[in-house]
Design a protein around this nucleic acid. Sequence first.
DNA 1: ATAATTGCAAAAGCTTTGCACGGAA
DNA 2: TTCCGTGCAAAGCTTTTGCAATTAT
Lengths: 141, 141
Amino acid sequence: MSASELAERLRAVGLKVTGPRIAILDAVERNSNHPSAEDIYQELVDTHPSLSLSTVYGTLSAFVKAGLVRKLSEVDGRLRVDGTKTPHDHAICRMCGAIFDIEPNPKKAPTSLSELPDGLAVLDVRVEYDVVCSECKPTPF
Amino acid sequence: MSASELAERLRAVGLKVTGPRIAILDAVERNSNHPSAEDIYQELVDTHPSLSLSTVYGTLSAFVKAGLVRKLSEVDGRLRVDGTKTPHDHAICRMCGAIFDIEPNPKKAPTSLSELPDGLAVLDVRVEYDVVCSECKPTPF
DNA sequence: ATAATTGCAAAAGCTTTGCACGGAA
DNA sequence: TTCCGTGCAAAGCTTTTGCAATTAT
């Protein structure tokens, strides 16, 4: 995806277009590895020497809020993001932390008895909705 | 649940029976508030003055590994546990961190379009499997 | 008796914050 | 011009670790 296309996507959600934001959005969407903030920083610091880790954190937070990227559970204490366009489920190995993409079965709810590929032994399943509750929902006026 | 019943449940999963473990298991199962480690520590420290926070962490970790309690995503950077017997989904408010129990619909996979009670506006859905991958799976011998 | 658990303190790790400078609109 | 974003350093929080004393089996 070209820089101008990335810029357009930033504008579309009301974010100012800056060098760091284009670079970070590009990195997140190109990486299918569910990178952490540190991963993204390390990938970009060679080509963007002035980039700082705190900018990566702030930018990812803005992207999540804007819906540009999806946030996974913190895996072993680290934030992980997913910038792919098509939503899917994830399997996370409790021992090594590896993350596998899982295609959801639209016909039934996920259960810990589900058959998963690649010899993945399921210990538990989490289904979590990110919401805004009625208390926090901003009143029109 | 009585102390002897709690002790029995610990023995059943191969954990030694100790005062802190009984107290913590009891607190987790009685609290339907998805408590954090600190929450549990604060609840117990009055009646168990010698209890330490690091013991709560270690004990919760052992309980999760043994399958006695379920682990949620870290909500705003904090581990949360759920000690209820019947699995269910969760809705987490992005603004205030409140956690709501959601009854799963077995007939269809969860989506961000799902209708949720209590005026909850859904921003995203996460489905995550806790697994042991084939690399980490211990070989029989 | 033996091995595991506990509690304390300190360390580690990730993320956030404050503030001054620079850049986008 | 005005406000927002950036970068640096430092602070903040949660969680983990090392170790000696205690406890369960």
